[in-house]
Design a protein around this nucleic acid. Sequence first.
DNA 1: GTGGTTCTCTGACTAAGGTCAGCTAAATGG
DNA 2: CCATTTAGCTGACCTTAGTCAGAGAACCAC
Lengths: 309, 309
Amino acid sequence: MEGVAQVRRFNRVVTQRVGALDDHFLSRDRPLGEARLLWEIGPEGCDVRSLRARLGLDSGYVSRLLRSLESARLVKVERAAHDGRVFTARLTARGLKERELLDRRSDALAGSLLEPLNEKQRDRLVAAMGDVERLLTAGLVKIEPRDPGDPQAQYCLEEYVRDIDRRFDGGWDPSRSISADPHELRPPAGLLLVASLASEPIGCGALKFHDREPTEIKRMWVAPSARGLGVGRRLLIELEAEAAARGMSRVVRLETNGSLFEAIALYRSAGYREVPAFNDEPYAHHWFEKRLRRAAQPSSAARRARPSA
Amino acid sequence: MEGVAQVRRFNRVVTQRVGALDDHFLSRDRPLGEARLLWEIGPEGCDVRSLRARLGLDSGYVSRLLRSLESARLVKVERAAHDGRVFTARLTARGLKERELLDRRSDALAGSLLEPLNEKQRDRLVAAMGDVERLLTAGLVKIEPRDPGDPQAQYCLEEYVRDIDRRFDGGWDPSRSISADPHELRPPAGLLLVASLASEPIGCGALKFHDREPTEIKRMWVAPSARGLGVGRRLLIELEAEAAARGMSRVVRLETNGSLFEAIALYRSAGYREVPAFNDEPYAHHWFEKRLRRAAQPSSAARRARPSA
DNA sequence: GTGGTTCTCTGACTAAGGTCAGCTAAATGG
DNA sequence: CCATTTAGCTGACCTTAGTCAGAGAACCAC
């Protein structure tokens, strides 16, 4: 790959200039581990076990760090009311102040990167950083088939409903709409793909297979926080690959509401052509169809993660 | 500053995705410190003292790391022929192999960042990384007044001569050209600014003050490796500030050869206007002049670093 | 040669970051 | 009510990364 040399230069420069500085800035008067923990607890407090999970640390180690923060009167650890095994760490007033200090230090570090530049350079740096951040994040998005009953899958489907209800003029009544119930999205009747970022669900898309008719695409949704990462396009491509590999028909189709203009733009740019209404979905304004080239393999990630049908 | 939030998001994502991974990739089977040292020694070998300087490590620590690499038969440390105090570290065949392994790992890491993206995203990521790298580097450039006798200053002046000789049609004979000898660039007769990046000289620019005539700008040079960082513009701005603060005249002027088109573009965009020849410099095609607004303060960095005149 | 400087090595020491096994207490499932 | 699981704590232990003082050889200026 030709960009590799540039990426390596970037890695070297950035880890030196940002990474090292960042650590040093944060761990000025206390060990880095403690500072990170303090930060991660947050103003709301946080269960110890989720701290462990988020920072990927050993239980004994976290315990010791918390003891140390406690003895510095920055943190209070209390037994949770709902479950006597779980402990919740909360920042004291002093801890909150300390966290704000870290916050200001982070700001200062960021400022020190911008400070030596002129305005035009600053704008370019900020824009480029935004691109890098977005694209690196996009690279972490995983797309896997999930059972519609899976909690993350359910979360996505519910958010889809909420989102659509919010956007449609006059709301959305799923019972009047063409169904996409869990059992219809489970193999072999259908398929549900869920996109996730750092184990958090951020999008979904589903297929309904038919014997004689084209495969339907349903429930395309991307979380607002994850828009602009190309997740929708990736979901669509994976769905098409799955449709080509598993569906009876070589054609996929879908209907959509006029208010979902990003989705419509996506379908058009992905090679879907608008066709006359092929069903009587009351909320649809546009019907799209695409003929798939041939049974391309779904991505290796999707293949590995496929649940045993 | 408004970009701070973006910079912080960038820092978080990049240190997590790149920084942590980078360290982990490199230090898979040996401590990070050893891996970095192994890398830094390079295929040519390297004096121990410059290893220390480059990595900023304690002499005792480096010694111990070298002992450890030696016992792993990756490195040989030998007394240098030219100076019995100096030791030179060289990679053994095995060390070279190990270094190549690190090299491949770095490539693999870079590849793993690009791999999940499509071609368009890759191009954008690589371009954005280039921008970030260049602008962060630009932020590290320091500009200070230096005595023309200082080794780094001399290096710049020599490179300027070499560069000009290469670019001018038929070469350049400094003796036929208007002089800018060391004593003319030393306060109070003149001033020399040197730009440096990580203690390496990368550019220079000088002033010659005159009692009744405008201050002259001479010896503007930027190392090829540092072009595109805005060093030339910063040098010019600092020179103007110095001219305004120290010169008798409120006007600066310069002459330049037609082959130095980047420089000419810089002068034009910095507000210089072309004027009739004000001297008989045989190598010049263009004469420029700029009226300075008022005695602006030179940058704080330059003020702090000014040598006692 | 003398004295001072430079370059490196060695031994003693420290803090940070982390792993692991075993323990206790609370919750949960039957 | 008992067995098992889960959440967290504790003590023992380890590596990495680094600092510091001092020693010794080589070099350099005089």
